[in-house]
C-alpha cells in the first residue's frame, strides 16, 4: 500500500509567548497523494507561509505530526537529525520570484542542488540539462540568468526544484509575477511534472486565474485548513 506524499495531522505553530503569543496554525490537517497538485488558498495573515515554512522544515511547529512518504519527520519534535539534508533531498522549492543565483549560469543554477548533495559536477550538470530540456529551456542552458525572460526564469526555478526528484515541491505563489498566459503555462508544467515524476506539489496562490486548474484546494483561514471537495469543484 502506498503512503501519501504529505500527511499533516493537527499541526500547530505559535509565535512568541505569554500575552504576546500568536497562534499562526491551530491544527492543520492535510493529505496530498504522490503526483497530485494541490492549491492552498487563503487571505494575508491566514497562515499560508507559516504552513509552508513548517513543511519546508525551516521553522519548527509547536505541535502536531508531519510525515513525508510515510516517514514521520515531525511529531511534537523533529524526527530527522539533518534538516538541511531533508530540504536538499526531499523537498523542492519554487518561490514567488525565481530567486536564481545571479552569478551562476542557467545550468549551474539547476546543477547546484545535486552538487550540494555530493553528485560530481559533470553528472550534476548532465542532470540539470536533462531537466532544463524537459521544461523547454534546454536551449538557454548556457545563458546567464539576467538574459532570460520572466517565464524562462520561472521554468529554470522549477527545474531546480525538480532536479533532485524530491517527493514534494512547495511552490509559494509561483505565478505572481507572470501574465495569465505564462501563469497557466507554469501550472501546466507543474501538473506535467507531477504526473511524470510522481511529485506531490502544494501551490500557495492568490491568483484567481489559476485557481480553477486545481483538482483539489485547501483553504486556510485563521490557522485552520478546510478542504474544498473535488466533486464540488468538478460541478
Amino acid at each position: 500500500m502506498s503512503h501519501p506524499a504529505i500527511e499533516i495531522v493537527g499541526l500547530a505553530k505559535r509565535y512568541g509567548t505569554g500575552d504576546a503569543a500568536v497562534d499562526a496554525l491551530k491544527g492543520v490537517d492535510m493529505i496530498v497523494q504522490p503526483g497530485e497538485v494541490v492549491g492552498l488558498i487563503g487571505p494575508s495573515g491566514s497562515g499560508k507561509s507559516t504552513l509552508l515554512k513548517c513543511l519546508g522544515a525551516v521553522i519548527e511547529p509547536t505541535a502536531g505530526r508531519m510525515a513525508l512518504a510515510g516517514e514521520t519527520i515531525y511529531d511534537h519534535g523533529w524526527k530527522v537529525a539533518d534538516l538541511r539534508a531533508l530540504r536538499r533531498d526531499r523537498i523542492g522549492f519554487v518561490f514567488q520570484a525565481p530567486y536564481l543565483i545571479p552569478f551562476l549560469d542557467v545550468t549551474d543554477n539547476v546543477a547546484v542542488l545535486p552538487m550540494l548533495a555530493g553528485v560530481p559536477n559533470g553528472r550534476a550538470r548532465d542532470r540539470a540539462r536533462e531537466m532544463l530540456t524537459a521544461l523547454d529551456v534546454g536551449h538557454r542552458a548556457r545563458a546567464q540568468v539576467q538574459q532570460l525572460s520572466g517565464g524562462e526564469q520561472q521554468r529554470v526555478a522549477i527545474a531546480r526544484a525538480l532536479v533532485n526528484q524530491p517527493p514534494i515541491i512547495l511552490a509559494d505563489e509561483p505565478t505572481a509575477p507572470l501574465d495569465s498566459e505564462r501563469a497557466l503555462t507554469v501550472i501546466r508544467i507543474l501538473n506535467e511534472m507531477a504526473q511524470r515524476f510522481g511529485t506531490a506539489i502544494i501551490v500557495v496562490t492568490h491568483d484567481e486565474k489559476i485557481i480553477p486548474t486545481f483538482r483539489r484546494i485547501y483553504h486556510i483561514r485563521d490557522g485552520r485548513t478546510y478542504e474544498e471537495a473535488g466533486e464540488a469543484r468538478a460541478a
Binding site: A85, R87, F95, Y99, V112, L113
Partner: peptide, 10 residues
C-alpha cells in the same frame, strides 16, 4: 536573498 535560497536548498 541568494544566501537564504542557498541555505534553504541545503
Amino acid at each position: 536573498r541568494e544566501i537564504a535560497v542557498l541555505k534553504l536548498i541545503g
